[in-house]
Amino acid sequence: MLQTEALPPEVRLVSNQHGRRFLQIEHPAVQACIALQGAHIIECIPAGQPPLLWMSPMDPCKPGTALRGGVPVCWPWFADERDGPAHGIARTSDWQLLEARADSTSVHLVLRLPQEDIARQLPDEGWTVKIEFTLGVALEIALTTTHTGTGPQRLSQALHSYLPVADIAKAEVTGLQGCCYIDKLNGATLTQQTAVRFDAEVDRIYFNHNADLQLRSRTDVLDIHREGSESVVVWNPWLEKSRHLSQFPDDGYRTMVCIEAANAGPDGRTLEPGSTHTLKTVISRTSSKQSR
């Protein structure tokens, strides 16, 4: 891991009261926080803007737990596609900081999942994986995987972004009209006819889609750009499921929605030995783009 004395002054390594370690970013352009466990960003607030991410106020951020909110890293499988922990091994593994630098407009960080951790948890597979964060007026996350094994290996993954809304009943996701999706609540494959709106639990994998999306919430608009992704997951637990989620308020569903850059469902990839794939998401606010 990069030594503390090599960090730029805008980046500090801190621990909370429970001993969980974070990279705390304080820069004129952005305030952010990333947990080393899971390479999990839990806060990103561009200067003069509301937060770009939603984080559960009930999560104590204790070591050894998967955090509820921010952007969990689902890797190298999504959901329960394979045996093992839900959403893969990345969320509860400790990552190492390789690079940290800052300029006048942003902070750039690179972390990797140590090879020994991958070998211990996936002894029959060969992977290297790193994640890059560029933090400024926008949040950019790029997850890069290289297959180092000897035969083809399936990869499914997601950047499980929890995004804030003022009122889920008045929020909508645009850019998915005409797109097919798998409804994970009943297994049906359907076509989205209008903007996605919410009046009940939603858990869907949209596929064969790579265009930009917008999350509209009253006067706020978040833009979601993806690269290396032909699928996007849209999720809101609604009331009943919220009551059963760990570290999640009963009414938490009212102020969040997940819009996840993914390689999920039909978009799962098969990597040949030596091949590399990068999944990227960029989250920004329309008003900030117009002001630049």
Rank of each mutant, 00 (worst) to 15 (best):
T255E: 03
S288Y: 12
I25L: 00
Q177T: 14
A35N: 01
V234Q: 03
P9E: 05
P46H: 06
E201F: 10
D183C: 12
S56E: 01
P164Q: 03
K62M: 13
Q31L: 11
T144H: 02
I224L: 13
K130A: 10
L122A: 12
A6R: 13
E132G: 07
W127F: 12
L279N: 01
G178C: 10
P72T: 02
L185V: 05
H277P: 02
M58K: 11
T174Q: 13
E227W: 09
P72F: 11
D124R: 11
P76V: 01
P114A: 14
Q247F: 14
S106R: 13
A142R: 11
T105L: 14
K62L: 09
P57E: 03
H108P: 02
R120N: 05
C44R: 00
C33H: 04
S231V: 12
E132S: 15
E10Y: 15
H18I: 04
S106P: 03
V173W: 06
Q121T: 10
A29H: 02
H244F: 08
E201M: 07
E172D: 02
I131P: 01
I118Y: 09
F22K: 03
I131W: 02
L113W: 05
A138F: 08
S275T: 15
L279W: 08
R269T: 03
Q96A: 11
L122N: 08
R112H: 14
V11K: 07
A195R: 07
H18R: 07
D183G: 13
N208K: 07
G151L: 09
I25Y: 00
A100P: 13
S56N: 03
L222I: 06
G136C: 04
P9V: 12
Q247R: 09
W127T: 05
G19V: 08
K62P: 03
I141S: 03
F78P: 09
V234H: 00
F248H: 08
W238M: 08
A264G: 06
L271A: 04
A188K: 11
L53N: 07
R226A: 07
L98P: 09
N236G: 01
M55P: 05
E125R: 10
H40T: 14
T281V: 11
V30D: 00
G136M: 04
G149R: 00
R91S: 10
A200I: 02
T276K: 01
K62Q: 14
L113D: 09
S93Q: 02
G178H: 12
W238E: 00
C74S: 04
H209M: 12
L98V: 10
A119F: 09
A66Y: 08
D251T: 06
T191R: 10
R101N: 12
R292W: 07
Q177C: 13
D223H: 15
K241R: 15
C258W: 08
G268E: 05
T270P: 00
P76Q: 01
G19E: 01
K62H: 09
Q290W: 14
D167H: 00
L213R: 03
V137H: 12
K280D: 00
